[in-house]
Amino acid sequence: MSVRSTAFLLFKRLVAACLLLAVISLAVFSLVYLSPGSAEQILAGGKGSIPPEQLQRLRAEHHLDEPLLTQYWIWVKDAVTLDFGQSIQTALPVTDELGARLRVSLFLGGYAFVLTTVAGVLLGLFAALRRNSILDRAIVASTLVGLSAPAFATALLLLYAFAILVPVFPAFGQGTDFLDTLWHLTLPALALATSSTAFLVKHTRTAMLGVLDQDHVVFARARGLSITTVLFRYVGRNALIPITTISALTFIQFVVGAVLVEVAFSLQGIGSLLVQAVAAKDVPMVQGVVMLVAVIVIAANLVADLFSMAVDPRVRLGGRAA
């Protein structure tokens, strides 16, 4: 029963995700037509006059003589096979550039996410368990500092402290193999993670306090269950639900919105690619990046939903267990 309903829910989510992607793809495709100037001008990189032979080539390459829906269909077929055409700026395939950038963005996002989750949940947990102690107050006070520190300022501070004063980490670059990448991305990941960690600490602390005060927890402890069992089986599981909900958003923000940190550490990630592409009116590149971001957002949300289904039976059973 439960397996079947889970499968059905998953199926529903996947269908919804595909529909959403279709709508987004239509909007992304229309970018060429919504931007000021003719489609040919946009595709030639916004130049005023285009020589006739180039015009001919552009019209043929982008099927501009076909009806609009046929153009969209051709574009979607190419996009499904990960072909978004050539970048206007570099004349290289958009997919190559995305591939090269995705690795560092996903690594950085994942690294910052792990740091945020581990540090945020643990600190929040300690603070909640030692409510109103000095430890709690110290943690809460430091979250205030963390919350008010913008990522690019933290980045410069970390750079100065750990690349120049005490040079244990590199000042720029993204590394080659796994360990080297881990070493190179530690400072950027810390810079990204600082304010989110502070946010998660507050969030976890509040969620924990809410659960700790509930009757079933008090009763469980009164039954003489060990503190670990109470924490993991009763408190942790309940507190995880609100944390899971925000974690997808946090991860997406790390992968896509890290542009200031990317610039500070000279990392060539998705965020700076999007900013460059928009500034250069590189429409094929913008289309590619936006579609990629849409896929990342949808996938991260799907994973978060699956995770909350695993922790929370009420979601799994469609509210029937409540």
Binding site: I164, P167, A264, S266
Partner: peptide
């Protein structure tokens, strides 16, 4: 040759001896 984001990054990298 390392590609850097801007002069500030280059100055930091230079100062760090990289």
């Amino acid at each position: 040759i390392e590609f850097l984001a801007d002069d500030t990054s280059a100055a930091f990298a230079f100062r760090a001896g990289e």
